[in-house]
Design a protein around this nucleic acid. Structure first.
Length: 947
RNA sequence: GCCGAAGUGGCGGAAUUGGUAGACGCGCUGGAUUCAAAAUCCAGUUCUGGCAACAGAGUGCGGGUUCGAUUCCCGCCUUCGGUACCA
């Protein structure tokens, strides 16, 4: 009987749907297990073969857990708000809701093709009002709370309001960056607006001025992604940093908890490290420098208070509030030009430009608070406004960047640490002995830091401080396709949130998605919506992509609840995510925000756990091969000229643009010899008609349309993202169509370790396809089912249990590629001995079911079972079938293998030492040499050391 | 620049705690079957030398620790991901 994947798949898809095989409930006596995938953004390109990699792995794990007796929650949904749908709408006029819906339908079909065990009754879409009602609600909760550093959790803002009215600011324990001071009488005298402005410094969701990428020519705010080399990617227009009043989330209040809780998570060390570096805790001092001829002070944070004597100048961020005020008239023109220049630079570029620093002198001087020396105040782009205080004390002797800056602008350098005892110490290493530092002289760096901290505090020029690199999350987007803020403002600018019964605040209909005047969200143009409530106007910005994705895993627990984001019962039962599978690209963004929201909800008693994701597995990216043609940037006599890769000389690449070509046109794609032949070139110009008159230069002369002789126009192959823009997307549908879903699933796993990135290559899939047919062939011959129901042979049980042992332990350690190998080995061996024993094969079916669910169901029912194979129990490994009488020992001389010898499994070390020396193959190696040592590792190996 | 990861045959990869480097699969070579091909089956396949037995080299590069290193340590190189408004 032939294996027919299409028939089998449609039969079992129908069966699963009809019998609700994957539906789960929290009303269960079984132990729970929650397996979650990072839900996809439904892009217009559809799923490519990279997306399902993690889904297949988590599906295997879910099915394995289910067979092992757990009640497994395994849901799927869509992160459906986002920029691409909006850009598509601007280009084509298609409403984002429509294109998103189409994309979701396509994704769903593609996912269904692969045979996942998702409980689709729990699907969530972040763009549906039933869902974002609760995103908005959580936002309002954040707005209504502050972080209390004493109780170490979020508290109601109403409590803080009461405190202020009774006590003023004195002794309050609310987290805030900039201390403010007022009395109860002041508070009472404040206008309502002034009181609210004060409270904005404490709310977990608050408004402040932050910077955006502003593109005047396009009249819009751009994402960092849309800015390349300081200009807009579309059109190449200049982009500048522009201040805007925007909503932010005070994630910094949770920095310490986000950091310390990492210890208890079962995440990879590298992932924890990335998170902890992102939070970036450092201990040091907050210091104030007086400004000469001014009553203002410059606040800095330093981790090296020991080096204050070496602080010979200061650097402010060009956006620093004091810049305007302290700049002298002689320097003003230069400063203004510099500030303008820095406005065109991206934050990334400013930080990355380590070799070439830039800056300008403000003309002002600050007073070093320790030695009262006047030091010049400079501006430098390497100091960022939003990081720390936006100002630094520069110590050129002990900091690389400060040193380069001082060298370039000829500023004073005073050596303050003698590192002569540490030859290979770098400039910033905290080692050595203090010199030229007054009362610190002679102290070690470590002791000097402590001594100076004491001094700073006793003199009242600063204080000890813990600083975090983590910044508050900017939460406003000047876009249409996102959650509307449930916020209105009155005529005084007072912020008034909506009530629960007014939620969800739905996105209004719009037909034009261009930004409104002044870079505002398109919503601002819908005046009837903006002014819907009498006397109040609505916030027109929308929430960012991470809003909906910060809590979706909770909604899956109870996705249809209309009175709460999820019921207490569901939350109590499902608790948290036991296994979360997703890409490292979310290492800091999504995972950090989700943890923050979760901790906030935990503080409010709304979720039962402090952390959302117990265990995290990162799947690597499946990359594509991108094929480029070299096109000369300059046209020749008005004609475009493409040049074969072998004719492009090294070092001249800059003269060429790299034009990606549809990979299907390319012969030998991905290889060094990748090229377009005459047919490929014809396809290329048919596809890109703007190049139909172009010249194609190859080593054997130029090619032009119509020429058919053998020609090789070499292309450049690079490994990179699989993406629509590179025309290299491989669709899983095509693979499933050709080889079947089971084969696709197993091949994706077979490609390599789940956490590793690797380029997709369809070539190897035949091996897995052959394997599946071979496995099927163990059960059937031409006549039909051929299994015997007799007592299994010892050899058969050994093959089975070797496989059980390998597969179950490898699933537990997420090594799915080696599981596939183990199935191949077992199948080859069973076939070799001609086994078709029913007991053995039955267990093999259950074993393979998580990997190849369709195949397993079909075989299971053929073996006479009436229920789904997923109602079965997972096979249990029994050591007794693997016991060996003798063991093969490799025998090495000085670590190099020279022979293999078989010894009794019970042989002692001494026996083996003796027997080894008698081996014939070993004689010639030890002849005439002294045996210095014999190392016997029982059941592993022998090494003879001779000399 | 900074943070994180990876680098093993022609290719994807295996080697779980420092103990037989190359499991399994692709590709390739030879053979069987076939009028022929596809499919299937059998054998071989790290490189160098050799008919062979065998010998030498070998896990990105350079050092180190060890009886023994793909695995641990130090220093580099290359590629990938993130770098706060792509998702």
């Amino acid at each position: 009987m032939e294996f027919n994947s299409k028939q089998i798949e449609s039969r079992w898809k129908t069966y699963w749907e009809k019998n609700k095989t994957y539906q789960v409930s929290h009303e269960s006596t079984k132990p729970k297990f929650y397996v979650l995938d990072m839900f996809p953004y439904p892009s217009g390109a559809g799923l490519h073969v990279g997306h399902p990699l993690g889904y297949i792995a988590s599906d295997i794990y879910s099915r394995y857990k289910r067979l092992s007796g757990f009640n497994v929650l395994h849901p799927m949904g869509y992160d459906a708000f986002g920029l691409p749908a909006e850009q598509y709408a601007i280009q084509t006029g298609v409403h984002p809701a429509i294109s998103t819906d189409e994309n979701i339908n396509r994704y769903r079909q593609q996912l269904d093709n692969i045979g996942f065990s998702f409980d689709w009754d729990r699907e969530v879409k972040t763009c549906s009002p039933e869902y974002y009602k609760w995103t908005q609600w959580i936002f309002i909760q954040l707005f209504e709370h502050y972080y209390d550093v004493k109780s170490n959790k979020a508290e109601a803002i109403s409590a803080l309001r009461e405190y202020f009215s009774a006590n003023g600011s004195e002794g309050h324990t609310a987290y805030c960056e900039d201390p403010i001071s007022f009395t109860a009488a002041d508070w009472a005298a404040f206008s309502k607006k002034e009181q609210e402005d004060v409270l904005m410094n404490f709310r977990l969701a608050y408004r402040k001025t932050t910077y955006v990428n502003w593109c005047e020519a396009l009249g819009t705010v751009l994402a960092n992604d849309e800015v390349k080399d300081g200009v807009s990617e579309r059109g190449g227009h200049p982009v500048e940093r522009k201040p805007m009043l925007q909503w932010s989330l005070r994630i910094t209040a949770y920095a310490e908890r986000l950091l310390s809780a990492l210890d208890h998570l079962d995440w990879s060390d590298s992932m924890k490290k990335m998170q902890s570096n992102w939070i970036g805790k450092s201990t040091g001092a907050r210091l104030f420098f007086d400004i000469k001829d001014s009553d203002k002070k410059i606040e800095v944070f330093t981790t090296r208070p020991d080096t204050i004597y070496g602080a010979t100048y200061m650097v402010l961020a060009p956006e620093h509030d004091l810049v305007d005020e302290i700049t002298t008239d002689e320097q003003r023109a230069e400063v203004e030009a510099y500030v303008k220049y820095v406005g065109t630079r991206s934050e990334r570029d400013r930080m990355a430009e380590a070799k070439e620093v830039s800056g300008v002198f403000t003309g002002a001087y600050a007073i070093n608070p320790i030695n009262q020396e006047a030091v010049p105040v400079w501006l430098g782009e390497y100091v960022l406004k939003d990081y720390g205080t936006g100002a630094i004390m520069a110590v050129p002797s002990d900091d690389d960047r400060d040193h380069r800056f001082a060298k370039k602008y000829d500023l004073k350098i005073v050596e303050v640490v003698d590192k002569s005892a540490f030859a290979d110490a770098s400039r910033q290493d905290k080692v050595g002995v203090m010199i030229n530092s007054g009362f610190l002289n002679g102290l070690s760096v470590k002791a000097a830091i402590e001594r100076m901290l004491d001094e700073v505090e006793s003199r009242g020029i600063g204080e000890r401080k813990v600083n975090f690199r983590l910044r508050d999350a900017i939460y406003s987007r000047q876009r249409y396709w996102g959650e509307p803020f449930p916020i209105t403002y009155d005529k005084d600018g007072l912020t008034i949130p909506l009530e629960l019964d007014e939620l969800p605040l739905e996105l209004p209909e719009l037909s034009d998605f261009q930004p409104a005047a002044g870079g505002k969200s398109p919503l601002a143009r819908n005046e009837s919506w903006v002014n819907e409530k009498t006397g109040l106007i609505r916030e027109t910005d929308t929430m960012p992509g991470f809003a909906g994705s910060s809590w979706y895993f909770l909604r899956y627990m109870d996705p249809k609840n209309e009175t709460a984001f999820a019921s207490k019962e569901a939350l109590e039962y499902w608790q948290d995510v036991d296994l979360y599978v997703g890409g490292t690209e979310h290492a800091v963004g999504h995972l950090m925000y989700s943890r923050f929201w979760h901790k906030f909800l935990y503080d409010k008693g709304l979720v039962p756990t402090d952390e959302p994701f117990k265990k995290l597995i990162n799947q690597g990216m499946i990359q594509g091969v991108i094929e480029f043609l070299y096109l000369k940037k300059e046209k020749e006599n008005g004609q475009s000229v493409f040049v074969s890769k072998d004719l492009v000389e090294k070092g001249t690449e800059e003269q060429y643009a790299k034009i990606p070509v549809f990979v299907d046109f390319v012969t030998d794609y991905g290889l060094e010899t990748s090229h377009l032949n005459a047919n490929g070139l014809e396809q290329f110009i048919a596809w890109r008609p703007e190049y139909k008159n172009a010249r194609f230069e190859t080593a054997s002369g130029p090619w032009s349309a119509g020429q058919t002789e053998a020609i090789k126009f070499y292309t450049l192959s690079e490994v990179g993202k699989m993406s629509k823009r590179y025309f290299n997307v491989v669709n899983p549908d095509d693979i499933v169509e050709k080889y079947g879903a089971d084969c696709f699933r197993m091949y994706e796993m077979f490609l390599g370790p789940i956490e590793q990135s690797k380029p997709w290559d369809t070539k190897g899939i035949d091996g897995v396809s052959k394997f599946i047919k071979k496995f099927w062939g163990l059960f059937f011959n031409e006549g039909g089912l051929q299994v015997v129901d007799t007592e299994p042979q010892k050899e058969e049980m050994k093959i089975l249990h070797t496989c059980i042992k390998k597969v179950s332990s490898d699933i537990e350690r997420f090594s799915f590629n080696t599981c596939v190998s183990a199935f191949m080995v077992a199948t080859n061996e069973l076939k070799k001995i001609g086994s078709n024993n029913k007991t053995v094969l039955e267990q093999m079916v259950v074993l393979i079911a998580p990997f190849a669910p369709f195949l397993a169901e079909e075989l299971w029912s053929n073996l006479g079972q009436e229920k789904s194979v997923f109602e079965a129990n997972y096979p249990v490994f029994d050591e007794k079938y693997l016991v060996e009488d003798s063991i093969n020992y490799p025998v090495s001389i000085n670590g190099k293998k020279r022979a293999v010898a078989s010894f009794d499994a019970n042989a002692t070390k001494e026996d083996i030492e003796k027997m080894v020396l008698e081996l014939e193959e070993i004689q010639k190696w030890i002849e005439g040499k002294t045996i210095r040592k014999i190392i016997v590792v029982p059941k592993r190996m022998v090494n003879i050391v001779v000399g």
